[in-house]
Nucleic acid binder design. Sequence first.
DNA 1: GTTTGACCTTCCCTCTACTGGAAGGTTTAT
DNA 2: ATAAACCTTCCAGTAGAGGGAAGGTCAAAC
Lengths: 127, 127
Amino acid sequence: MNISGAAKAAGLPVKTVRYYADIGLVTPSARTQAGYRDYDDVALRKLSFVGRARALGFPIAQCRELLGLYQDAGRSSAEVKEIALERLEDIRAKQRKLQKLHDELAHLVGACKGDARPDCPIIDYLS
Amino acid sequence: MNISGAAKAAGLPVKTVRYYADIGLVTPSARTQAGYRDYDDVALRKLSFVGRARALGFPIAQCRELLGLYQDAGRSSAEVKEIALERLEDIRAKQRKLQKLHDELAHLVGACKGDARPDCPIIDYLS
DNA sequence: GTTTGACCTTCCCTCTACTGGAAGGTTTAT
DNA sequence: ATAAACCTTCCAGTAGAGGGAAGGTCAAAC
């Protein structure tokens, strides 16, 4: 299957699939005589796997680890869980940070009249 | 005041202050004969202003707008509020997205035993 | 008076994870 | 035969800096 077919099957943009090949994350199974990337079933499944991992927000480096475990029959679920927990903690840290920003900004916005006069608690806070 | 003094006063890294000068966000008030950036009180206040806006997560473009309003005696608080509301909606969108990721990943992690066996609902989900 | 160390400057590379586009080759359909 | 629709590589850009090299400057110590 050529790159556009593979991209469609994995639900990814062609550019992204090419990028994954470039960085050695998911390489095509072969090249045609003309140099076209060729994806077989195994490569396709890896592409979809990475697509879903990325959709969960795993960075490329963790996708690489997960892909390694995916192909490793001798893996332990503990290894997988560890990576997922790392990512989960990452998400929670981001959530805490966003919550703080949200509360602070919401407070300021609530205090700002939003009228034609220049007086503004938001500007005051930043000053 | 030279760049390291200005950076310290604004609580920003020197590299960041130089970067803000490069992109024309906060330019030094002058240069010494030797070419050193020189920051006066006004420039210092702008630096601090931007530092606080960035800490609230405003992107550079919005910092630029806010800085413009900060210096504009004829501003209306409505203009400021509009920018802040934009940013707030941005934060809320990110929160919603993170919440979805969190719930999905937490569910998977909860279902994974994390033992020595290879069976793993996380891998299953990604496959 | 010079030397040392701490500054400062510009310039270019690196990071994440792509995205866009140009120039040019290939395949397929008409 | 040719036009459309593919494909290729390469280069540049995104946000917001951070790292580091090569070289100029300045203040204090010796």
